[in-house]
Design a binder for these strands. Structure first.
Lengths: 236, 236
DNA sequence: GATCAAAATATTGTAGACAATTTTTGCAGA
DNA sequence: TCTGCAAAAATTGTCTACAATATTTTGATC
C-alpha cells in the first residue's frame, strides 16, 4: 500500500484529479517552491513536457484552477496563483473552522486502529524528511486522514481543496528556512496523543494553535518574486 | 443590476462556470426537479441541444462534477448524482458549520447598507415565487450574500459549491409539496432581523435551525426515481 | 530616439476526426 | 425461452486542425 494513497478516498473529483500526472507534477512543483507565483503555464509547453496533447493539459489546468492553485485568464492562459496575504488568512481561517470540527469528530469516532494508522503516518512523515515534495504531501495527508476518520466526506473534500493552497502559500511566503519548522510532525504527534486520550476539546484547540502557528510562520513580504522557468521547474 | 448577479463575486472557478449556458441550464433543471438523479447526460445530445461542440459540453460536465452535481464514470459518461441520505446529512452538517460562522462574521461587519441589500433580496425572493428555477437560485444566493458580507472569500467559495448540491437533494428528496415550505423567506427575514440587531449568537443559532429544518424536510425515501428524458427536461 | 500603427507571430478557444471502450444487437446452440 | 458469444452500433477519450484572440515585432513618422 503506497503511503501517498493512504488518505485518498476514491470519491470526489479533486481526489481523482490528483492522479493526473500533470496535476500531480504541478502540485509537487508548487509545493516544493520550484514553481513560483505568477509563472505562466503554457499549454503547448506542458503538453510537450509530458508527451500529451493540449486536451489533457487543459483538463489539468481546469482542475488546478478549481483547487485555487491556478488562475485562468480568458484568452491569455493559466498562471500560478499569487495569493495575497488576506487570502492566506482566509484560507487558514477556513481550515481552522473545518479542522477543529473534523478533529473533534475524529476524536469521538476513532478506533485503536485509527490511532495506530495516525502514528504510523507520523513515522512516515519523519522518514520522508529528505524528499521534500513527498514530505509536504504527507504532512497534508495527515490532516486529510483525520478528516476521514471524522467521517464527514464533504468536509474531507473541502479540506482536500484547501490543503494544496496552503502548501502554495507556504512555498511562497515561507522565509528562507525550509518548511521543516512550519508544520512539524511534533505537533501532529501531540494531536494524536490528545485524540488517543479522547480529549476532543484539547485536540481541537491543539489543532487550532497548530494552524495558527503555520499562518504566523508566513512572512508578510509581498514582493513579487520573479516567475520561474516552467520546463526546468517541472523536470525535477 | 440583474439580481441573479447580486451575490456573484467574480473570483473563483465555480462562479465563472455558472455563466456557462450548459452549466446554467443543467443546474436550473436539476434545481427545479426536471432532471432527476441518475439521468445520463450524453455529450452528443447536449451539444446538439445547445448548438455547441462536445468540447464545451465536456467542460461543463467537468465543472458540474467539481460541484458534486454530476458523477463522471470513465468511458461510460456523465450522470446526475444520486446522493445518499448520509451524503445529504454530511452536506448539511458542512453548511451548518460554515454558515454559522459566516453569519456570525457578517453580523459583526455588516453596515446599514448591507442590511438593506439583504431586505431587498428577500423581497426579490417573494416576488420570484412563481418562477421556480429563479426562486431557488435566489434562495441560495441569499446565503451566499451573507457569506460575502462575512468577508471570508474562501468560505464563500466553499459555500457556493455546497449550495447547488443541497438544491439537488431538495429536488430529489422533497415530498410532493413544492419546495416552498423548505427554505422560506420568513426564516431569511428572521435572520436578517437578528443581524440588524447585532445579535450574532442569535443569528447563528437561527441559521442553524433554519438549515436543520431544511434537512428534516427531506424525505428518507430512497426509492430510485426513474431518470428523466434529457431533451425535454432541458427544453424547459 | 520615441511613439504609434500595422503586420507578423504566438497562444488560446472550439470543433471535428479518429481511436478506444462500452453497449446493444443478432444469432446459434442448448 | 434462455444463455453465450461475436459482430455492429453507439459513446467516450484524445489528438490535431482551424478560428479567434493576444502579444510581439516591424517600420514609418514625428
Amino acid at each position: 500500500m503506497p503511503p501517498s494513497r493512504l488518505a485518498s478516498n476514491e470519491t470526489g473529483f479533486w481526489a481523482a484529479a490528483q492522479n493526473d500526472p500533470i496535476v500531480r507534477a504541478i502540485v509537487d512543483a508548487i509545493s516544493a517552491g520550484r514553481l513560483r507565483a505568477g509563472t505562466k503555464l503554457g499549454e503547448e509547453e506542458l503538453g510537450a513536457l509530458f508527451g500529451l496533447g493540449r486536451t489533457r493539459v487543459r483538463q489539468a489546468l481546469r482542475a488546478l484552477s478549481f483547487a485555487g492553485l491556478v488562475r485562468l485568464e480568458p484568452n491569455r492562459g493559466a498562471f500560478v496563483t499569487s495569493p495575497s496575504f488576506e487570502e492566506a488568512e482566509a484560507v487558514y481561517a477556513a481550515r481552522r473552522l473545518i479542522e477543529s470540527e473534523t478533529v473533534r469528530e475524529a476524536t469521538r469516532h476513532c478506533t485503536a486502529n485509527d490511532i495506530r494508522r495516525l502514528r504510523t503516518h507520523c513515522q512516515a512523515q519523519e522518514a520522508a524528511r529528505a524528499d521534500q515534495p513527498r514530505y509536504i504531501r504527507l504532512l497534508a495527508e495527515f490532516h486529510l486522514l483525520i478528516a476521514e476518520i471524522g467521517g464527514n466526506v464533504v468536509l474531507s473534500e473541502l479540506l482536500a481543496q484547501l490543503l494544496p493552497r496552503t502548501a502554495l502559500m507556504q512555498a511562497l511566503y515561507q522565509p528562507a528556512g525550509e518548511g521543516g519548522g512550519a508544520c512539524p510532525t511534533d505537533h501532529h504527534m501531540e494531536i494524536v496523543g490528545l485524540m488517543a486520550q479522547g480529549d476532543e476539546v484539547g485536540a481541537a484547540s491543539s489543532m487550532t494553535t497548530h494552524l495558527t502557528r503555520n499562518l504566523r510562520a508566513l512572512a508578510i513580504t509581498e514582493e513579487p518574486s520573479p516567475p520561474s522557468d516552467l520546463t526546468s521547474a517541472l523536470l525535477l
